[in-house]
Design a binder for these strands. Structure first.
Lengths: 235, 235
DNA sequence: TATTAATGTATCACTATGAAACAATAGTAA
DNA sequence: TTACTATTGTTTCATAGTGATACATTAATA
């Protein structure tokens, strides 16, 4: 296992991705834990010399989750000096590699482009990369202390997601193909962090004209069965 | 005049700024024209090794306009491969410098962070930098062909400005200290690109509670004189 | 067949908004 | 002084959207 090659990647440029998933109850994000350090961080990566930025992020997401063609949104670029922390990066590498050179491009300052994605929690097989020994889902309400400015990045991502939720009908990838109105509402509540009125939520969603109603779902409960819906596929 | 030093700046990282001004009638942006090439581009710059990104952009804005403490908003980071155009950069440098090395960090690929600013058109003394022989205002409706992906960047900036206009009461810096309701409306119309209903516009602005009403402005016209307003300064 | 619990829909009050009318007023001209 | 005009400030009205609540429907169970 060798260090990433400095001629293959653009120096000083990174991306970090905040990957949201929905457990059926709570909103989660994917976090990595580095080998032998107890340190957590957002999954991120670097941009190859001849690779578009968006493509680099997609590649990283696919490598880590196995998912392709996912709604990915760039939300902010982080370039403060608090980001610079060569000591931490050195320890991460030293915990993994026998020999770490005294100077390396990974120790230098990075400007990081933040992206977020929304994916179906149930379809993910998170794979740790070479630097981390675990990658797992964490409650957005219980995010541990993260490296660098990653806690701030998570905050910003959530903020962006909340304010743009309606416009972007984001839930597309957070739910399975077919879902009930209640499940859709739970997604909204998990993201916005507050209860929604059931009747009004239903009215609003139906009025948007983006839902297709299918057969009912008989779950066995002694009550009216809900309809299943899917998102209208624009032709 | 020497080329910028590669040890002083972060390679591969640039910013471009779309600086909006209001002429009293139309929305304008600042564009630079490079020496002896007839080429136009957005004013932009590079980030120093120990300088926060935001600070770099503020420094550039101040250098070019003399204005400080201006509303600056980051809106998108551009990282496609169409951005790469070493030939154009070479010609720009050659038109200015006697000797240009065959290899230079300015010829390599840049990822650029886009910012926009809103400033008082009348307070600006635009100063060309060493690479450009003019910097001037252009109508947003009549932007000439720009270098690299700068036309796309302008589009994105306008889009962002339009969709966030209400939330951010941006006009703060586009108008003089005191202004009439009509002038405020003209700013909105110039940005949104469409007429607003006078009565409804007034009602909405007043209901926001961000305006302070002052004395009337007697312009000499044979009609009712308008009030002057300023933006409420939160204490 | 009554009961229960969840779902689908309707109602009502209130607010926001577009369109239009009305009212006020600073100057000009008779 | 008195119309007249142009612009500004305000009101009115119809309509659409929204929060809160009630009502109606229905799948299973007792």
């Amino acid at each position: 296992m060798s260090l990433p090659d400095s001629t293959q990647y653009l120096p000083h440029i990174a991306y970090d991705s905040v990957i949201f998933g929905f457990s059926g109850e709570k909103l989660k994000i994917l976090l990595m834990e580095y080998h032998n350090t107890g340190w957590f961080a957002l999954p991120g990566g670097f941009v190859k010399v001849n690779e578009p930025l968006d493509e680099a992020v997609n590649r990283g997401l696919k490598e880590r989750t196995g998912l392709d063609q996912i709604y990915l949104e760039q939300f902010h670029t982080f370039g403060s000096l608090e980001r610079v922390n060569p000591e931490a990066m050195r320890k991460i590498l030293e915990a993994q590699h026998k020999e770490v050179p005294s100077r390396h491009w990974l120790f230098e300052r990075f400007i990081s482009v933040g992206y977020y994605a929304l994916i179906d929690y149930t379809k993910v097989e998170a794979k740790p990369d070479s630097l981390s020994d675990s990658i797992d889902w964490y409650d957005v309400g219980e995010v541990p202390q993260l490296l660098f400015d990653h806690n701030y990045i998570v905050e910003k991502a959530l903020e962006h997601l909340r304010t743009h939720l309606d416009q972007k009908l984001l839930s597309v990838n957070l739910l399975p193909e077919r879902f009930t109105m209640k499940e859709l509402q739970q997604v909204y509540e998990a993201i916005l962090g507050e209860k929604q009125n059931r009747a009004n939520f239903q009215r609003k969603m139906l009025s948007l004209g983006i839902l297709e109603r299918h057969e009912k779902l008989y779950s066995g409960g002694s009550h009216k069965a809900p309809f299943l819906y899917s998102f209208h596929t624009r032709s």
